[in-house]
Design a protein around this nucleic acid. Structure first.
Lengths: 157, 157
DNA sequence: ATACATGCAAACAATTTGCATATTA
DNA sequence: TAATATGCAAATTGTTTGCATGTAT
């Protein structure tokens, strides 16, 4: 799912086009990863200083009902990203920027008979860590912080 | 970890013995699975009609700090069970009674090189469903019209 | 014009905290 | 008694809802 498809779906279902709605979807399009309500609010408050969380939550909830977005939870916060309809999969999730990378491996495939007594109805498998780009940034931050903390100073870029 | 070990640990660390504390640990001992703050409150309000959530939360948090309990999240609720120190593992979690069963399979073992650029720091793998006992009960309730509704911790000896 | 979308404020639920009191060692 | 545990009430955080208004079709 992406913004364009989502906009078409909304239109077909009779939902109205609004700038905020489009901009929320646009954020997801550009992000390619998870966003929380708070993320969205802080991204959009530039263009819409008065944007309210109700609107964001209502749209996230609508998008989820329409299978535009899928939800998961991280640290007690609900986070969303575009729903992937094609096939079952899991994600690497960057804890710093929220970007995700799909992995096609599913651990359930190998677990046919863990416990025949237990009726499996669902599972959650997520891998957390830091993407290359964030690691680079973190390394740089550390470097710059180190310079400020130490007495000897060499120019930073 | 179990109640007895936990009590010893608490004593050694200088924490005081209280009935509530003991009874909370006792619940976990008898439960062998996950409990939420709400579960604990509803189990203990018989003996302690005025038991407050602050006490429960404070104790859960203490137990977690002391590695007596481990925490996970289900449906936006924090749930706890005894911490298992021996080895890394995952759980089957019954969505009805909260009981868990440890499984030794870890999907990460097979995923050495999913993405060399991504630095993995953690993962979550949980399997949800219904245990044998709950499936039996649910089948029975279907007949009887289902008035039974308890967290099923049998009386202590 | 009408149905849907939004903002406001208030309600919620889960969890946390300050402070006075009660309890354990 | 001295340190810790608890209860109360109030604060916090994330999320939801009722209602009046605003806006897209």
């Amino acid at each position: 799912m992406n913004k364009r498809e989502a906009m078409v779906l909304l239109k077909n279902k009779g939902y109205k086009h609004t700038d905020k709605r489009e901009d929320i979807l646009d954020l997801f399009d550009r992000k390619n990863g998870y966003l929380s309500a708070k993320d969205i609010q802080s991204e959009l408050k530039g263009d819409y200083p008065g944007i309210s969380f109700d609107t964001i939550y209502r749209n996230l909830s609508l998008f989820q009902d329409l299978m535009i977005l899928e939800e998961t939870e991280l640290d007690g916060e609900k986070i969303y990203q575009f729903h992937c309809t094609e096939h079952h999969h899991h994600h690497l999730i960057c804890l710093r920027c929220g970007k995700t990378r799909t992995i096609d491996v599913c651990p359930m495939q190998d677990l046919s008979q863990i416990d025949p007594e237990f009726q499996v109805t669902g599972h959650k498998f997520e891998i957390y860590g830091y993407c290359k780009s964030c690691r680079d940034k973190m390394a740089k931050e550390k470097f710059e912080g180190g310079i400020h903390d130490s007495i000897t100073v060499s120019p930073s870029t």
